[in-house]
Structure formats: structure tokens, C-alpha cells
Simulated scan of single mutants.
Amino acid sequence: MFEMRSSWVWDFWFADDGDRYHLFFLKASRALQDPDRRHWRATVGHATSTDLRTWEEHADALVPADGPAFDDLATWTGSIVRDDAGLWHMFYTGVNREGKGLIQRIGSATSHDLFTWTRTDLVLEADSAHYEKLAQGAWPDEAWRDPWVSRNADGTGWNMLITARSTTGDPDQRGVVGHAFSPDLARWQILPPLSQPGDGFGQLEVLQTETVDGQTVLLFSCLNSELSTERQAGQERGGIWAVNAPSALGPFDISEAYLVADQSLYVGRLVQNRAGQWQMLAFENADDTGAFVGRITDPQPVAWADGKLTMMGAHHPSVGNRRYVNAS
């Protein structure tokens, strides 16, 4: 389990250099006292492990930029890929002071070693031809975040899946899988969403696609409070969701989504251990009283059961042995 005495830890993503797993995660000081304030103080932390259980913390990977910049308030969730020349690319979310943290944009940084990162000049914004903007007033912020980047199946270019909202439909059901394409990780074209609105989700957070034992699956997260009124009336719960798909680009029928874990856990991430077995980690979101926890679980094996991706370990936040980072 990854826990820090000094900071809350929440959304996270991985890079694997072949020897070590690199964990990148959002963190904010516990001195803020109120965990709801963490979003506007978020930086991207970094830790490494050989077994996904015992972690060594390193210097932060990214902190808010000097202003004015699209990310001069906070740096949020992203993903990492490696190009054919061996250069690592981190795509991440930024919010700025000018926009009062309400307008989300996507930027990138590169690294030769996964430790020292240099920002590029990339800034991707939501295209109003396909995606809801803040000015529409249908949602508290302009959702355009959590980029999940992967190589095209045929090797010709890269795709980015994005937490976004449609311009149409009931306001509480506009969550869609945003999409952009790049031939080279530098030039990006924003494309229509890979799912439709109206399936009961205000937003689909922290997307990931993987093929597990021959079946492609899309993971996303959505809280109780961000489910549609209809889903809430049906006593449905938020948490980590999955939807099976024909390919990494869908199309994704979000109406077929099923719950993998309730919102005591959030942001499920699939990763293969050195034996090639698929595991899921998540961050512990809420304890039995509903209070925010802010630490990352040990890996739990996953398997298919009745056509659904299933965590084989316990779903409760107490699962696993607690390990403080750099504990004395």
C-alpha cells in the first residue's frame, strides 16, 4: 500500500521501464486540513517499485508552472507513453488561476529517464464542435482532462481518450469518451466522442483501455453524486466502472457499464505484474464514515466472471498491509 504521512494521494498512473514500475500520482499537503481543498494544490508525485507493493518516493515530477500558463494553479491526472526513439511523453491535465480552476486543458512534458521532465508547448482545449464548454453553464466546470494515450493497433499514430462532456442531452447525462488522434505525439486532431451521451453519467473520469485475456475493457470512475438523477433514483452506486468493448477505440456502449468496486475505492488502474498477470490498484477514497482517505491500495488480481471484469481480492479499503513511504 502506498501512503504518505505528509500528503494525501489520489489519482495515479504508471510507466514501466522494464526494471521498475514508475508510479505518478496526485498529491497535496495534509496541512490543508480539508481534503476538498486538495484539487487546487495538486502536484504530480513520483515513486518506484519492483513489485507494485513496496515503493520508494522520488522528487515530484511536475508542479504548477510559473504564470501565466494553462497549468499555473494545479497539475492533474494523465498518462505516459514511450516513442520509438525512447523518449517518454507525459500527457496531463492543467488548470490555471485566470480561469479560477474551472477550465481544464491538456498539456505534455517529455523525459529521457522518467525523473526529470520538460514541458512542451502543447495545449489542447475542448472543441465546441463536439464538446461542452464552460459557457454553456450545464456543469460546474469545463471537463477536458485525464488523457489516456495509447498507440494505434496498426502502429500508425496515437489515440487519446479524454474525460469530456457532450454538447447535447440531459445535463446530468452528458459524460462521454472524448477522442483525439496524433501521428507523432506532437500534432493532435480533436475528433468526435467514442460514446454517446444519455447513459446516466455526468462524467467518465480517469479512462483506461486494456485487453485482458483477449477481451478489451474500458475502465472509468464516477461518483454517486455524478450519476444521473435516474440512476440515483434506482439506488445505483458510484465507484469504479467497466464496459466491455470490441476494440481500444470502442465504440463504447456506456449503457452496458457495470460496477467493479463501490466508491470506497476510486480510479481503478490495470497493470501487469512481472509474471504477466493482470492486477488492479485503486486509491482509497472514503472510509466507513465517508471521510476521505487518500492512499493507494496494494495490487489485487482481476479475472473474468460471467463476462464481467472482477477484482478477486476484497474491495474494502482495509485490504492489504499499510506501508508508509520512507517510513522510519
Rank of each mutant, 00 (worst) to 15 (best):
E3K: 10
W10Y: 14
F14G: 00
G18L: 14
R20P: 01
L26H: 04
K27G: 07
A28I: 10
L32C: 11
D34C: 02
R37F: 13
W40T: 13
V44D: 07
A47W: 13
A47S: 13
T48Q: 14
T48K: 14
S49Q: 15
D51V: 07
E57S: 14
A59R: 11
D60A: 14
A69H: 10
A69F: 04
F70V: 00
D72K: 05
D72T: 03
D72F: 10
L73Y: 06
W76I: 09
G78S: 01
S79I: 00
V81W: 02
D83E: 13
D84I: 12
V95H: 12
V95I: 15
R97V: 09
G101P: 11
G101Q: 07
R105F: 09
R105M: 08
S108W: 05
T110L: 05
F115S: 01
V123G: 03
S128F: 00
A129E: 07
H130W: 11
Y131C: 04
Q136F: 09
W139K: 11
D141A: 07
A143L: 13
A143V: 15
A143P: 05
W148E: 13
N152G: 07
D154V: 13
D154I: 15
G157F: 12
I162H: 02
F181W: 15
R187F: 10
R187S: 15
W188R: 04
P192A: 09
P192M: 01
Q196V: 04
G198M: 06
D199I: 02
G200V: 11
F201D: 02
E210T: 08
V212Q: 05
V212M: 07
D213W: 09
V217K: 00
L218R: 08
L219N: 02
F220K: 00
C222W: 12
S225Y: 09
L227F: 12
T229S: 09
R231A: 10
G234D: 13
E236M: 08
E236W: 06
I240S: 02
V243L: 05
P246M: 07
P246Q: 06
F252N: 03
F252Q: 12
F252S: 06
S255M: 08
L259H: 03
V260H: 03
V260I: 11
V260C: 02
A261M: 14
Y266D: 11
Y266C: 07
G268M: 03
R269K: 15
V271K: 00
Q272K: 12
M280K: 02
D287F: 00
V293A: 08
Q300D: 09
Q300A: 14
V302H: 10
W304Q: 08
D306L: 03
L309V: 08
L309A: 08
A314V: 09
A314S: 15
H316R: 03
N321D: 10
R323N: 04
Y324W: 15
V325I: 10
N326V: 08
